[in-house]
Nucleic acid binder design. Sequence first.
DNA 1: AACAGTTCTGTAATTAAATTACATTATCTG
DNA 2: CAGATAATGTAATTTAATTACAGAACTGTT
Lengths: 285, 285
Amino acid sequence: MNVLEKIINSVNNFSKSERKVADVILANPQTTIHSSIASLAKLADVSEPTVNRFCRRLDTKGFPDFKLHLAQSLANGTPYVNRHVEEEDGPEAYTAKIFESTMAALDTARQRVDISAINRAVDVLTQAKKISFFGLGASASVAHDAQNKFFRFNVPVVCFDDIVMQRMSAINSCDGEVVVCISHTGRTKNLCDIAAIARENDATVIGITAYDSPLAKECTLVLSLDVPEDTDMYMPMASRVAQLVLIDILATGFTLRRGSKFRENLKKVKDSLRGSRFDKKDQIS
Amino acid sequence: MNVLEKIINSVNNFSKSERKVADVILANPQTTIHSSIASLAKLADVSEPTVNRFCRRLDTKGFPDFKLHLAQSLANGTPYVNRHVEEEDGPEAYTAKIFESTMAALDTARQRVDISAINRAVDVLTQAKKISFFGLGASASVAHDAQNKFFRFNVPVVCFDDIVMQRMSAINSCDGEVVVCISHTGRTKNLCDIAAIARENDATVIGITAYDSPLAKECTLVLSLDVPEDTDMYMPMASRVAQLVLIDILATGFTLRRGSKFRENLKKVKDSLRGSRFDKKDQIS
DNA sequence: AACAGTTCTGTAATTAAATTACATTATCTG
DNA sequence: CAGATAATGTAATTTAATTACAGAACTGTT
């Protein structure tokens, strides 16, 4: 465990003087790692051995060792945290915050994601006779992206962001086909209906949605993504990025399952773009 | 800069003995931070002052300070690194790798992004009479997403992923209108044409693309995103996520610029969805 | 090739820092 | 309120790191 957290957690086990030490350290950890035991003792208004004892209590070998641990805690202790954008934030502030919040969201998504569910989803997708991606609103662009990835795998892929088309497509689905429904909240009625219809027609329904949502209940297989979202902005941000990464993961799993020979196909798809692009060498033709 | 990288980079500036020290440290950095100057000197077969001089050359105050820096390097040195997916990776492996690579990409994007360019882009966008988002292929879904965000701001927003529509739209553009062209490589000929056409018609063209690309040259304002991409997969992954986050940042900048009263509008947009959703309380109505 | 100048490296002395041992004070318990 | 125990501080000790200096190795010049 991180020393900094350790200090916070075991604040009750400290004696009066040790607590003073803890306070000084927590108030300014960055300074602590560059100060001597003498100066820290003075700041905390305790004796030097007290500081030393404090370090020992935290299972470090002594003060220098403690500083080492503290330095490491500071380095990776609070790397990416979800920070809310404030009214008075300038461009640097909100840019940094959004990047960091997104990274924090991906980090929690990574920790919470159910790997075996991903594996099963990849299973299902590789065996699919046809894959459909459905999303509405913000999730529509994720569905779009998924189509852009999966169409490369020479499997029939469709993507609809229109309820009527989705509905028609769902009604016509059958056994062996896979329908992927994407919704952050999992509460969009229309999409739940579509999942239900697809399932009634024996299609396998994969839901990329919140665990325990109405949509999740309609799915054969749920890939849940519970990600902290800054609702102050009234726009889905982090959740969508997490969905996108999940799509990347599914696509990657797909290609790995198909083996190396298959990868050559992907290269061909990519190479086919060459004609539409400026060459790297003579940039402005 | 990270001390560990610093050692690697400045290996040529070292003297013979200093190099010995560097070798020992690089061979086992984790041990180094727990050893004394004496033991390290012995391992490297040099004198203690040599080790000290080595530390000073790396702009640290001395050996203990050096260890502190080293400890921090080791702690945050490999938080999220770009790791390539391998043929034999199982689901845990590739899932972790993709998450981490994406986070690493966001981290570099954050460091490289030009904040003043973002600020100018927000300026331009808030004053736009109309905003158009154009992207092709994988970037089309990013354009889609941008539309989904910006249409909330009661500004006319369009989004086309079709060259013909883009072209017609660009030709009809005029002063005061903003065209946002999205392309990871910035080498898609069609999109470069469209940027040029829009500019000829006095529209402001913002490019979300690679710095120094043909597309960048056609733009009024470039938001460059140079992100490491795992080309083994032959699919754009990290780059797209970075683009998406950039859109989030622009949208956020937009709402902040408009002030708090404007934010109420966003809430209304969000609330308008309520009718189409299952209530949180009685989930299955 | 020999010399002067420079840079590099090690030895020994010095200084600074951290730790230990012990004494003192505070706190708790019966 | 005494006795015991835990907590804290003082001073001594030890350990580690740094400095000062001297000798060695290398560089370029005549």
